[in-house]
Nucleic acid binder design. Structure first.
Length: 350
DNA sequence: ATTATTTGACCTAT
DNA sequence: ATAGGTCAAATAAT
């Protein structure tokens, strides 16, 4: 396990090096050098991955974490990451910032194992009573009390739960942007949760009747991680008049990965002696930019560029950071997030 | 002026 | 009865 840490550490170092030496000077960026540097980072992380997987497989063959890790790691393996980065750089250097952002979205979604090109959208579009009726009824602005408001049953809509790290820059009270634009329509305290849940719907709900919604809530034990529940698919990007280059929506169901004896559930406390059992991975989906998602700090519209040649807010180190699901500041590599240790006093549970 | 957020009230499912 | 989800008026931001 020590080797793993060393490899990850090394990867972080290399990533930081890229950040300071390459990305600091975006005007003079040298793609070939950058690519080889990235390759080194990838090698380091990939080495760590291999060792980690070995450890996990050895320790617990039935752990969902391990299968998830293999899935995810497989999808964002070293070579493909490198290739995708190259593709992104090629494209972003010659296209608009928004296109670059979208491309990077796809790259990262691919890294996460999310389909980037539409693919199995149909699979999840299985809700029979589509919400169009719901929408049209609401559109009527029923002012008199409607005794039978056709609100959809909670279980009718498919839900996809994703854990996202907090934004590392800007408003850390928001999870990382997912590339869609959201409008907040509610916030509520949830029984048994420290943090309130926020309710968002797609900004284009009115214009295009897009039914997509999401709920965002901080996780009790780790305020750096948000649990984001997506409900409904975006249809706004399918309209002929709608924005055309929206990123593909996240498609995985319930990709929360918790250890078998989940310390978050309280039982057993935060301390476990075995590294493999105490290690847990969040699924991460990030995208780059997307736009005002309800946070006033992000500005309006989907044109806000976070990654991209023009304004590299998120840098390679951050990406590596996020790949390994650190939920904390970009300043360190956040080994704590990866390998929560027993000596972390902040993890005390009631 | 327009668009987004906040927040208490209201509605529905359990 | 209660918790979770949504509405919509008031307010804030742009």
């Amino acid at each position: 396990m020590e080797e793993v840490l060393n490899s990850i550490s090394h990867g972080c170092e290399l990533a930081k090096k890229i950040e300071s030496e390459q990305l600091a000077n975006m005007a003079n960026i040298q793609p070939d050098i950058l690519v080889s540097s990235i390759d080194e980072v990838v090698k380091a992380f990939n080495g760590a991955k291999e060792k980690l997987l070995m450890t996990m497989v050895n320790n617990n063959s039935s752990s969902s974490s391990s299968s998830f890790a293999q899935q995810q790691m497989g999808a964002c393996g070293a070579s493909s990451f490198s290739i995708m980065m190259q593709e992104w750089m090629m494209k972003s250097s010659s296209s608009t910032s928004y296109a670059a952002q979208t491309t990077m979205d796809q790259v990262l979604l691919q890294m996460q194992g999310f389909p980037a090109g539409g693919g199995d959208l149909q699979q999840l579009r299985n809700v029979e009573g589509s919400s169009s009726m719901d929408k049209s009824m609401k559109g009527l602005e029923v002012h008199q009390l409607s005794p039978s408001r056709p609100r959809k049953r909670k279980n009718d809509a498919e839900k996809r739960v994703v854990n996202l790290p907090a934004q590392q820059l800007g408003n850390t009270e928001m999870p990382m942007e997912d590339g869609f634009t959201w409008r907040k329509y509610g916030q509520k305290e949830i029984l048994g949760s420290k943090y309130q849940r926020s309710y968002y719907r797609c900004t284009h709900q009115k214009q295009y009747g897009c039914p997509a919604k999401k709920q965002v809530q901080k996780i009790d034990n780790n305020p750096n991680i948000f649990e984001v529940t997506y409900v409904g698919d975006h249809t706004c990007h399918m309209s002929s008049t709608a924005p055309s280059s929206f990123p593909q929506q996240l498609q995985l169901d319930n990709i929360n990965i918790m250890p078998p004896n989940n310390p978050l559930q309280g039982a057993g406390g935060p301390n476990t002696s075995s590294p493999s059992s105490s290690m847990w991975m969040h699924s991460v989906s990030l995208s780059l930019g997307g736009g005002g998602d309800g946070s006033s700090s992000a500005g309006a519209g989907p044109s806000t560029l976070k990654y991209g040649v023009g304004g590299a807010d998120y840098l390679v180190a951050d990406m590596a950071d996020v790949m390994f699901n650190s939920g904390s500041s970009s300043g360190n590599c956040s080994m704590e997030s990866l390998f929560p240790t027993s000596d972390d006093p902040s993890e005390k549970k009631t």
